[in-house]
């Protein structure tokens, strides 16, 4: 895991220095002299050689210092950590929506296999899969923001609200503090971006889980449960489902990391104040330390998700738990 992160650090550090664009040039007022340029370069350490810069940066990171953002002149770490909770809440909400929709579709499709209901579910899945998340975002804005405005289409929370929170996990904390008025406002802001992110993942879950349920339904222990007197619904949820989840879970883990990547564009689309939105700003401003910090954090999230998936898999599969 550490090796992965180091690899990511190396790649991002050098790649963003190879692509054209000069952060110093962005900061200079018109008519600045050679002298000013040299002074600014020295201030941000750009006068040293690339390997030197890299060593200084990595040494800082290891001590928890990710450097200073060029565009905002604030420490990268506090900037990034301030935005991280918003993105985590968005991604988790999208995941929950995807799992709920996906499982309901898969179970319904299995219950009514071979009928028109299953056919309709397959068609819906195909459509959901072939449209990318940002297009779903635009469609949702059109539907629920313009034609039938029930949800907020931009931001994370209404600016008029007074937020009594100690952390940036607003959604989580609003429940803890029993401020359901704020919670409702947050959900109303998050719902559409979360749904846009969730739709393709829901389709993947529905398709995989349905496939693996159908295979499981032919197995002998399912037949045996039928002879015990269990009805179709019990057989599907209690005998087939715990087994069918396993192959789905691994893929959902991979897909969830794609979803986290998808937050970058979706957050931009909905002006949601998360990490992804900040990443785009950082790239536009050539804010190299900030880009590095955000990418490292994304990489950390990806590896953590994979770790959680592995642990959950072992928890649900007794053959691995004791093996």
């Amino acid at each position: 895991m550490l090796i992965t992160l180091f690899g990511v650090a190396v790649i991002v550090f050098f790649v963003i220095r190879v692509v054209p664009g000069n952060p110093i040039a962005m900061m200079l007022p018109p008519g600045a002299g050679e002298e000013d340029i040299a002074r600014l370069k020295a201030l941000y350490g750009f006068d040293k050689s690339l390997p030197e810069q890299f060593v200084i940066w990595v040494a800082g990171v290891l001590q928890g210092d990710f450097g200073t953002s060029i565009s905002t002149r604030q420490p990268v770490l506090s900037l990034v950590l301030g935005r991280l909770p918003a993105t985590i809440e968005l991604a988790v909400m999208a995941l929950v929506i995807a799992i709920v929709i996906g499982s309901v579709l898969a179970l319904t499709g299995t219950r009514h296999r071979g009928t028109r209901t299953e056919g309709a579910i397959d068609v819906t899945n195909g459509m959901a899969l072939s449209v990318p998340d940002f297009l779903w975002g635009l469609l949702l804005i059109l539907l629920f923001g313009v034609l039938w405005p029930v949800f907020h289409i931009s931001g994370r929370v209404s600016p008029a609200l007074d937020l009594p929170f100690a952390t940036n996990f607003y959604l989580f904390e609003s429940v803890l503090r029993l401020r359901f008025d704020i919670w409702l406002d947050l959900v109303s802001h998050m719902f559409m971006p979360a749904l846009a992110l969730a739709i393709p993942l829901a389709a993947i879950i529905a398709q995989l889980l349905k496939q693996s349920l159908k295979e499981t339904m032919h197995l002998d222990y399912v037949t045996l449960a039928r002879t015990h007197g269990y009805g179709e619904n019990r057989v599907i949820t209690r005998e087939a489902l715990p087994n069918a989840i396993l192959p789905t879970l691994t893929l959902v883990g991979v897909q969830f990391t794609f979803l986290i990547g998808g937050t970058v564009i979706i957050e931009r689309l909905f002006s949601y104040e998360g990490l992804g939105n900040m990443a785009i700003d950082a790239v536009i401003n050539r804010d190299l330390p900030l880009i590095q910090g955000i990418v490292i954090l994304f990489a950390l999230m990806f590896t953590l998700v994979n770790l959680i998936v592995d642990l959950t898999y072992a928890l649900l599969n007794p053959r691995l738990r004791h093996g």
């Binding site: 197995l219 002998d220 222990y221 037949t223 045996l224 449960a225 039928r226 002879t227 015990h228 007197g229 269990y230 009805g231 005998e239 715990p242 087994n243 649900l316 599969n317 007794p318 053959r319």
Partner: peptide, 28 residues
């Protein structure tokens, strides 16, 4: 009716299946 039939079968009959390797639920 199907539900009634399942109940009668579950109470009066039982199956010893062919392949013991696949007839037990692996996660329980």
């Amino acid at each position: 009716r199907p539900a009634e039939r399942r109940r009668v079968i579950g109470q009066t009959a039982a199956l010893i299946p062919q392949d013991p390797l696949t007839a037990l639920n692996p996660v329980r």
